[in-house]
Amino acid sequence: MTALLDIKNLHVSVGEREILKGVDLTINPGEVHAVMGPNGTGKSTLSYVLAGREGYDITDGTITFMGQDLLALEPHERACMGIFLAFQYPVEIPGVAGTTFLKTALNALRKYRGEGELDAMQFLKHVRAKAKALDISDEMLRRPLNVGFSGGEKKRNEVLQMAVLEPKLAVLDETDSGLDIDALKVVADGVNAMRSPERSMLIITHYQRLLDYIVPDHVHVLVAGRIVASGGKELAHELEAKGYAQYADAAAA
């Protein structure tokens, strides 16, 4: 099987500081991977590097996505190829209506993929059912993007975008942060509904809690910029019981 995403020996610095110190990670189509680790260990850096955010120096290593050199692509090209980052802190954008934003994004993707653009009616039809499943009203869709949304509304909106844009690889960065248990269930249901043999996910989280709802195939432990352990879903429970301290020595090595 050809890997969907293949990260090899990835070294990333911000300014003088090296954050990722040789990360290897392979994700095959349909797999759900979780990367767990304490705060400040480089989890969000990994997600931003995948999405193509500026300000990160890739000092060594490669990332191959669908056989292509991902690092050579602009952020919007990565999105068009099928990478979706669900943000830990979705950005509020006053003056841009949610529907305008989502329609522009969807049509950009469709254009890139050689599909016809959707008109307003077709777009609404495409979005409404998905929005309803996530308990997102038309009124909320029309509002300026994320402006004044609660933490739960923002995360639901991220999942809606994911559902509408139908990525090949969804990267969920601390999607459970700031969610109460009810909101977490809605979000997890939304994500689970999208699991398919063609779609992979990379779930980045500090806590095991989210993984009770979105059950991963593989779990990796990221400590001090390196993956220090990998295993099945039982690894998450072990971490919950024992904490990250046991890996401190491995990371320092």
Binding site: A79, F84, V91, I93, A105, A108, Y112, Q161
Partner: peptide, 12 residues
């Protein structure tokens, strides 16, 4: 905001 939009497929 710019990165957020780009990360959804919208060119710069």
């Amino acid at each position: 905001a710019l990165f957020y939009l780009q990360s959804r497929g919208i060119d710069e």
